[in-house]
Design a protein around this nucleic acid. Structure first.
Lengths: 254, 254
DNA sequence: ACTACAACACTTGTATGGTAGCCGACCAGC
DNA sequence: GCTGGTCGGCTACCATACAAGTGTTGTAGT
């Protein structure tokens, strides 16, 4: 595969290299293709992607602002380990914003909005039948985004999305484990039902318990994959990759 | 004045050039020292600050993510005009997060928390007596930050702060106009009072109306300073500075 | 065997050079 | 006078070179 082709091809569509690299790395981090703690060298990434250090570096700075990577000057850049604090903060932000938007959506959402949401629910049910969790993730994202748009606050979605990224990293582990797609879809449906009926408090409660379920899921994951999480009170001083000994004789790694 | 000295002196305190430039520009934009619509050239800024283009550029990218500047490739970077959408979104985000944090603070805040808040209120009253709106701004910032900390969500403050930045730009105009410092302080006090008494709904209401007042203030400003705002539906295609005609006769400088 | 030390490889941070693209100004032609 | 084309200067974007700092690691000394 030649990833540079994909990059340069997309550049024609009005997005610059920095944005492309940013999105690429972001998706790799959220999907855990890049595991927490992994080292991200500007040089290596630039070489791998066939671009210069500049856009890579700028992407890493942005990811650092999002809390997805930790940059230690003169030491290295690492995929951020999942921190209890960050998870809790993300959960708080998400819950506050999504529920507030939903409350605004009650009595404001049009029939068209509701119809669109129900269409998404049907599509989500499809992904369950096809056993396509990846597809569900995309539709889940869209569902929550549209819910906020129905409340008249589409601009706030990026903020939620950023918080969500922290949760999603751990969630990727939980979903295939629990296989709770039908449960999640049921909760989505409940939210839309209450929204349609105009019951403000019940809608809020439905969405809140849904978000909380995802949150508690993350907590259970922690016991199973402690290596992905940061120690509670041990500020991780990451280790540099031990240098591979350039030993001609036995270095035949293929 | 030699701003470069301040920069390089502060560099010793563990902050790199990018962060310093970022903070500097951010404060200048929020204080309206850099007016909406103003052009920000990487070259000019680098020359003015005595650093290279790299940290300046990286700062501008970050400011772009915050919505404080608009970057038009191959055209220029401009201080973002105040957009109705951005203001509304910022208000929504701020209200949702601060009120949610306050609700958590009720029944959780310690006596120490309340005492600290009251100390801030006293200091705010001082700034009113001394007619020091700049000082009030700082204390206001700290008050709201501590309120969120009292709710157990200090990590969410940066998100609020970023949203607040959009509002503050317009607020800078409104405050000296209205001279409502005492009113604002009174509202702050009401929030703390309800928090201390443990009345959840009244605390929420007190904070919400406080935040709304600030918001409506911004709206009144719009009529007086339309040039700082963007047209509702006209995506501003910013103009480049007209070139000064190089007229030999009258331009004998140097 | 163990420790102190010094060179090294590698990191991010900063500075600078070159490129594609856009806009305003200028000018020929109508 | 007005319009279309061209030119020049400016922009952000990307690439590259240099600087400053850190942990590892091999080594000499004890």
């Amino acid at each position: 595969m030649a990833p540079t082709e994909g990059l340069h091809a997309a550049r024609a569509r009005g997005r610059n290299t920095r944005q492309l690299v940013h999105e690429l790395l972001r998706s790799r981090i959220i999907s855990l293709e890049l595991a927490p703690g992994a080292s991200l060298s500007e040089n290596d990434l630039a070489a791998e992607l066939g671009v210069s250090r500049t856009p890579v570096r700028e992407s890493l700075i942005l990811l650092g602002e999002e809390g997805l990577v930790d940059v230690y000057p003169q030491l290295g850049t690492f995929v951020a380990r999942i921190r209890e604090r960050d998870i809790a903060a993300a959960q708080f932000i998400r819950e506050a914003l999504e529920c507030a938007a939903l409350r605004d959506a009650v009595g404001r959402a049009t029939r068209r909005d509701v119809a669109d949401l129900r269409e998404l629910l049907a599509a989500q049910a499809d992904t369950e039948r096809r056993d396509d969790p990846e597809g569900f993730f995309r539709l889940d994202e869209e569902f929550h985004a549209r819910l906020m748009a129905a409340g008249g606050h589409p601009e706030a979605w990026p903020v939620v999305s950023q918080a969500k990224a922290q949760l999603d990293r751990a969630r990727r582990l939980s979903l295939p484990l629990t296989q709770q797609l039908s449960l999640l879809i049921g909760q989505h449906t409940a939210v839309v039902d209450q929204l349609e009926q105009g019951d403000l408090d019940r809608a809020d409660e439905a969405l809140r318990s849904h978000l909380r379920l995802v949150f508690t899921d993350v907590q259970t994951i922690r016991a199973e994959h402690p290596e992905l999480f940061a120690e509670p009170e041990a500020p991780v001083r990451p280790r540099r990759e031990p240098r591979r000994r350039v030993d001609r004789a036995g270095a035949g790694e293929g």
